[in-house]
Simulated scan of single mutants.
Amino acid sequence: MTLTEIISYKNVRFIRGERIILDDVNWTVRTGEHWAVLGLNGSGKSTMLNMMGGYEFPTSGTIHVFGRQCGKYNWEHIKKRIGFAGNTLNRFLSSLNNETAREIIVSGKFNSIGIYEQTTDEDWEKADRLLKDFQLTYLTDEPYRHLSQGEQRRVLLARAFMASPDMMILDEPCSGLDVRAREDLLDSLQEQVVKKETVLLYVTPHIEEIIPAITHAAVIAEGKVVASGLKKEVLTNHVLSSAFGLPVEVEWRDGRSWLHVVKK
């Protein structure tokens, strides 16, 4: 692993029961790159990213994150350098519902649901800046349960930035959002990625969510990385038609890609 490599997957396989979830995955993320990980539901993309947090371990092959090999290092030190936002946090909904937007954002410093450690004035000031950055100031003291789904997603996104992580993993953060809420979230994310040095890994089945700040893309199909590299070289008609199993065309406008299904 070279000094510029932040993530390295080499010949990674993951088998659950008799099902092969990931099959011979090779993938490298380097300093200065922001990636979209794209694939249909069930393609293995979320499992692939979960391994970086130590939630799954490869059946064979090796994974290095920040120069450390998964399974041969105290992974709690690695997890502290990674911010995460995704639908998996919904399992803590009963706890989140009783906290304010500001409290939830501050809890991101400790990677906890709820605040159980000593906070400082600087922590609350940083949370206030994040509330402003994500256009959530009007919700500062509102309970999470009173927020719309789009507002909740932006609060969790702000929470993920609270600890100033070296890497951010967003697992389908726009799932279930209407188009206005989706665009509000993506606009906020674009602004934060441009301002900060955090490496972004964005998992999605929708190429329309790939913001201009994202530089690279990996396409996953049936547990394999079928294409990876600069996004305009990867997100092509041929690659996506093959990965999605139907004819599609890609259109680029203002740094964003849009997918059209070709009807015969």
Rank of each mutant, 00 (worst) to 15 (best):
M1N: 07
L3K: 10
T4R: 10
I6N: 04
I6L: 13
K10E: 09
E18D: 06
I20V: 15
I21H: 02
N26M: 13
T28W: 02
V29P: 06
T31E: 13
G32M: 13
H34D: 09
W35F: 11
A36R: 07
L38S: 11
G39A: 15
G39V: 15
L40T: 15
N41I: 15
N41L: 14
G44D: 02
L49F: 07
N50K: 15
Y55M: 15
T59I: 05
T59G: 01
S60Y: 05
I63P: 01
I63A: 07
H64G: 06
V65D: 06
F66Y: 03
R68Q: 09
R68F: 02
Q69I: 08
C70K: 01
G71K: 08
E76W: 01
K80P: 01
R81I: 00
R81G: 04
F84C: 05
A85T: 14
A85E: 05
A85F: 02
A85K: 07
F92M: 13
S94R: 12
S94Y: 06
S95R: 03
N98G: 15
T100N: 05
A101I: 08
I105W: 03
S112H: 04
S112C: 00
G114A: 03
I115K: 02
T119K: 07
D121M: 12
R129V: 05
R129M: 05
L131P: 00
K132L: 07
D133R: 11
D133N: 09
Q135F: 04
L136E: 04
Y138H: 12
T140K: 14
T140G: 07
Y144R: 02
Y144F: 14
L147I: 10
Q152W: 04
R153W: 02
R154M: 00
A158H: 04
F161R: 03
S164P: 04
D166V: 11
D166H: 03
D166N: 12
L170I: 11
E172M: 14
P173D: 08
C174R: 05
G176M: 08
L177W: 01
E183D: 07
L185K: 01
S188K: 03
S188E: 06
Q192S: 07
V193F: 02
K196Q: 14
E197F: 08
L200T: 11
L200F: 04
T204W: 02
T204H: 08
H206C: 12
I207R: 05
I211A: 09
I211E: 06
P212Y: 01
P212W: 06
A213M: 05
I214V: 15
H216L: 12
A217P: 08
V219L: 11
V219E: 09
V219A: 11
E222H: 10
E222C: 11
V225S: 01
V226N: 08
S228H: 09
G229R: 11
K231A: 14
K231Y: 08
K232S: 15
E233N: 15
L235R: 10
N237Q: 13
V239H: 09
V239M: 14
L240F: 03
L240Q: 11
L240T: 12
L240P: 06
A243D: 13
F244H: 12
V250R: 12
D254E: 02
R256H: 07
R256F: 01
W258P: 00
H260A: 14
V261R: 14
V262C: 13
K263C: 09
K264D: 09
K264L: 13
K264C: 10
